[in-house]
Computed example of a mutant assay.
Amino acid sequence: MTATEWTAETAGSGRYADVNGVNLYYETYGTGSPMVLLHGGLGSGEMFGPIIPILADHHQVILVDLQGHGRTADVDRPLDIRLMADDVAALIDHLGLRKPAVVGYSLGGGVALQVAIRHPEKVGRLVAASAHVSRDAIYPEMLQQQGQVSGAAAEFMKETPMYELYQRVAPHPEHFPRLLDKIGEAMAQDFDLSEDVRGLQVPTLVVAADADMAPPSHYVEVFKLLDGGLRDGGWQGEARPKGGHALAILPGLTHYDIFLSPLFAAVTLAFLDQES
């Protein structure tokens, strides 16, 4: 994967919003019903460059750079998906959006889940891609790798698209080691969102690659928390999950390329454009 794959061919309309104590950067693409799109850890909204035109052909896409990522400067607080969810909820209010879809990948998927958990009245539909809901769901070797993420690793990441992107767009490029420290600290925290997910009031699409950071069985279990995969769906779909939830395991993809895939864009659009 090259850094250029993480760059949108056409720039959106970029602005800053002072919300919840963060000067949050966002770009707007397209027209139609709004979709807030949230990137993965150590990335920015630009990660979605290849699929933005597909999404923006159907929706107004609001591409957010989360705290400490991309063009949004860090603030003096941990990288906590609950706090970042409150940032996104405040941005939704700031922009006057009425129940937009919230779509997130990886870290952004965790933030998207928290927006729907903490602020269900602000969200129309939710897409959470490659977002495991408990720390112990991911493979042991991944937990070990995550344990090695800290500012000390900055030198070893200079050839990565994450580093290139940060150096190019961050307000303070010299803060990359600090971002690694905060990401490492966040990933070291144990968590289990199962009960929160079980209580989701927003129609939710759970998306994962067939070779993701957690096994496909984990995402099936998440779907079960949402009343899915428990019975035959019926001829007319009458026995599908009561909350309008859905599951997509995308073939031939991994945690590291699913966000670039037209297949991800296609299933997202198909879910968002369903009748409620």
Rank of each mutant, 00 (worst) to 15 (best):
G70T: 02
L37H: 05
Y29R: 03
V36H: 07
G45K: 06
S33E: 15
M35D: 06
D65C: 03
V64W: 04
H39L: 08
T31C: 05
R77T: 07
Y29N: 01
H59V: 10
H58K: 15
Y25K: 08
G45F: 09
E27K: 00
H69D: 08
V36I: 14
I51E: 04
I54N: 01
Y29C: 00
T31P: 02
H69S: 13
G32C: 13
A56S: 14
G45W: 05
V64P: 10
I62S: 06
H59C: 08
L37E: 01
V61C: 13
Q67W: 14
D74F: 02
L66K: 08
H58C: 12
R77Y: 11
D76V: 00
L37F: 09
G43M: 12
L66C: 13
T72R: 02
D57I: 06
H58Y: 13
P53F: 02
R77V: 09
S33P: 13
G70R: 02
N23V: 08
M35A: 11
L38Q: 04
R71H: 02
V75K: 00
S33G: 13
E46A: 14
N23R: 14
G40Y: 04
G45P: 05
A73N: 11
G49C: 04
M35R: 04
G68S: 13
L42I: 07
I52A: 06
T31W: 04
L66F: 10
F48C: 01
P53M: 01
L37A: 07
A73C: 10
V36P: 06
M35V: 15
P53E: 03
L24T: 13
V64K: 06
P50M: 05
G45V: 05
V75M: 00
S44T: 03
I51K: 07
